[in-house]
Each structure stands twice: as structure tokens, then as C-alpha cells.
Simulated assay, not measured.
Amino acid sequence: MDILWQYQFRIILLGDSTVGKSSLLKRFTDGVYSDVADPTVGVDFYARSLDIEPGVKIKLQLWDTAGQERFRSITTSYYRNSVGGLLVFDLTNRKSFEHVREWHREVTEHILPHHMVYILIGHKSDLIRERRVLRDEAEQLAAELGVRYVETSAKCNSNVERAFELLARDIYELMKMGEISARDGWDGVKSGLTAKVLYPAEEEAEREKSCNC
């Protein structure tokens, strides 16, 4: 039996082939790392729950997309039904960094008039000597795209948990502000059987003041 969750967020991982999307997901969901990874064919599915705040459990439905061009027609159908995206590049592969804008533009065009919450991920931070992208460059790109930037290593389990948690928290905060909500015909956000009623911050404060419990 599944653990009860208040909300489900569908998250999609985006980026060139071999940047390490699958290894990030396996580390986050299963706590394991493998040097051997077959290229993703089409889309793979993972899931894990996070406790965002006391009494609020978020189920993350995670979709690992193929980075190869020949699978784009398959993966684009998943863009519209996602609320969050991890834009992943390989810190040792300059071209994968240069392609981030293309991934961001492609997804944005497919989901209009709606928007997606992104985090930019510089992966394989453990390979210090092979590094080809400076942190300053990546942070500048993140600022231009209006997203957070996190450097991760699935091999060393560095910042993997933090990256997914930051994205989930950003989505949840936008829900509390009323900018994102579950809607019919969209799988990006789903409410569970025990959904928490979200109120704007000002109204929440007033409710707490008037609570006599």
C-alpha cells in the first residue's frame, strides 16, 4: 500500500545523452550508483516521496528522458504534463552546457501558455580535473534563465538530495502563492486523498491568530 501523500508532482529530467540523468535518479530513488549505464530509450519512470513540511508529504513522479535527437518525438509528449524540470549538463562536457538553452527553449515552447519550474544541474562535480565549465559561467546562465543552480555528483552522492528537494519546495511555495494548482486534464500536480488546504501567507497568518487550539 502506498504511503499517503498530499500532492504528487511530475518532474522531468532534461539534457543531452550521457550527462548522467539516470544515475542522478537512481541515486536519489534507490540510493545506489553504477558506473555502467545504458542510454535511456524513450522515457523511464521513477518515484520517491519527500516530507516538505510537517504533515505534508509530496510524491515525486520522476521521468528520465532520452537525450538523443531520435527520441524527441517521444519525450516532447511528456513536457506538457510536467510541473518541474531539472536541466542537466555534464561539467566535463562543454557541448552539453551549450545545449541547455535549447532544451529550455524547446520545453518552454511546448508548454505555453503554462510554465515549468526549473533547476539547472551541473553534474559530475567529482571529476575536478576534467571540468570544462566554470561555476561562474553556470551561475550566469542560471541567472539569465531565472532558475537556481546546483552542482551534483551521483558518484559521491553530493547535493543529489538537495537538488530534488529544492525543486519540490519551489513548486510547493508557488502552489501556496496560488501560481500553480492542480487542474483537470493535467498530470503536473495531483492532489492526494489527504490534500492540505493551501492559503495565501496573509490568510494563513490570520487563521493561526484566530485558532484557539
Rank of each mutant, 00 (worst) to 15 (best):
D136P: 02
D51E: 14
S153M: 06
H123R: 02
E204Y: 05
W63S: 00
A163E: 03
M1D: 03
E102P: 09
F97M: 10
S210G: 06
L167Q: 01
R148S: 08
R70H: 13
T152E: 03
A195D: 00
G31I: 14
V43C: 06
Q140G: 02
L193N: 13
K155E: 10
E139S: 03
F28G: 05
T76G: 00
V189Y: 04
K190E: 12
S34I: 04
Q140N: 09
A138L: 13
M175H: 08
T40P: 04
G15S: 10
E161T: 10
R148C: 07
H115Q: 14
A154T: 09
C156K: 00
V107S: 06
L166S: 12
I121N: 01
D16L: 12
R129C: 05
T18W: 00
K176T: 11
A205E: 10
L60V: 04
V32I: 09
T108H: 03
E202M: 15
L87P: 01
V160S: 11
R169W: 14
V197R: 07
D35I: 09
R135D: 10
T65E: 12
E144N: 10
Y79G: 15
L62K: 01
A47S: 10
P200D: 06
L145R: 02
L174T: 02
I121K: 06
G84Y: 01
K59N: 11
T29N: 02
P113F: 06
E130S: 11
E165R: 05
K95Y: 07
K209Q: 08
S77Y: 01
E203F: 01
T65H: 12
Y78H: 09
S77G: 14
V88L: 03
A163H: 07
R80Q: 09
G20N: 07
F71C: 00
E165V: 11
V56C: 03
D2I: 14
R48C: 10
L112G: 01
Q140K: 13
V147E: 04
G20C: 06
E137S: 09
T152L: 05
L60M: 08
E206A: 10
G55N: 03
L62M: 08
H99G: 01
K155P: 08
R183D: 03
L13M: 09
E98Q: 15
I128R: 08
A47D: 05
H99S: 08
W5V: 08
G122F: 01
S181T: 13
L174I: 06
K155Q: 08
V197Y: 00
T75Y: 04
Y79Q: 15
L141D: 08
V100L: 11
I119C: 12
S181K: 13
A168L: 04
H104I: 07
A168C: 13
C156D: 15
L50H: 08
L141E: 09
H123G: 01
V189F: 03
E144V: 12
Y78D: 00
L198T: 13
E144C: 07
V189P: 04
Y149R: 00
R105Q: 14
D2H: 12
